[in-house]
Write a protein that binds this DNA or RNA. Structure first.
Lengths: 142, 142
DNA sequence: GTGCAGTCTGTAGCGGCTACAGGCTCAAGA
DNA sequence: TCTTGAGCCTGTAGCCGCTACAGACTGCAC
């Protein structure tokens, strides 16, 4: 049984395909310390297994939620090193949630102004352009 | 009258201070073609006037509204070259408005998930961490 | 054996700045 | 007059999160 080539691994292209990651991104994540260095074949090819795949998925899901790579590194360190990571992980997530809310607030301010100027521009046949005048005026956003 | 050293200009530090721009950013905007090259003094110092200041403010306001430098270049080209820039400018702004709305939608999705996991984590004393389990699970964001 | 696809490495590029090194210039003070 | 220090000049490198490409090697099919 053990001789059955214990859990045959996969190469970079396969793990990328299975996780929906760009091929180069996998190597990048390894380089920046998000992914442990996989074992290599005799000729130096990387050999991934399901733990790598699982970890890549973690990174991708966290990226989808907008976590920075630094935050993800922190989360993964908690996972790896702490028995009870929840309190610390919660802090990371709560801080990030505040960042996300701040970004939303910024974007909503932009949206309001943009919506207004586009409306004022009407069909664009005005002699003076409200958009351009807004941009030349001070305190466009307030 | 004309001999009165026609409109004495200012140097980079002053125009930066007056517009609230970082000193280096002014040079950067010149380098990437958002700002025309100002005249130089005999010793090569840049000499800005109020038209440069006005243009820098335009760029800053547009940045506050989230326009990319490419979009700003396009807007400025319209200002410089078109008699009636409003129709084209409106298209640039409307397109950007759509981008902003898409970003808001993305962030709101993130916010919902994050809010939920932070809430589930409670005070962080749970044995299993809902946040971390969510990240290891597929389709964190849906 | 020969082709071709896959992998390896290192490096450069994107956007939008920001910062710093190393050299010049300029104005004020001793 | 000489010096000192602040300001300006240039070019270049760094930040983030990838992405892409060059040039060399490997591995598999025909």
């Amino acid at each position: 049984m053990r001789n059955h080539a214990l859990v045959k691994g996969m190469q970079r292209a396969e793990v990328a395909r299975r996780t929906g990651t760009n091929l180069e991104t996998v190597r990048y994540y390894e380089k920046v310390g998000l992914l442990p260095e996989p074992p290599r074949t005799q000729s130096g090819y990387r050999n991934y297994d399901t733990t790598h795949e699982r970890r890549i998925r973690f990174v991708l899901r966290a990226r989808e939620l907008g976590f920075s790579l630094d935050e993800i590194r922190a989360l993964l360190r908690l996972v790896d090193e702490r028995d009870q990571p929840c309190a610390d992980a919660r802090v990371v997530a709560a801080t990030h949630l505040e960042d996300v809310r701040a970004k939303i607030a910024d974007l909503r301010r932009m949206e309001l102004v943009l919506k207004d100027v586009v409306k004022q521009c009407g069909d664009g046949t005005l002699p003076a352009c409200p958009l351009i005048e807004t941009l030349f005026r001070e305190n466009a956003v307030t």
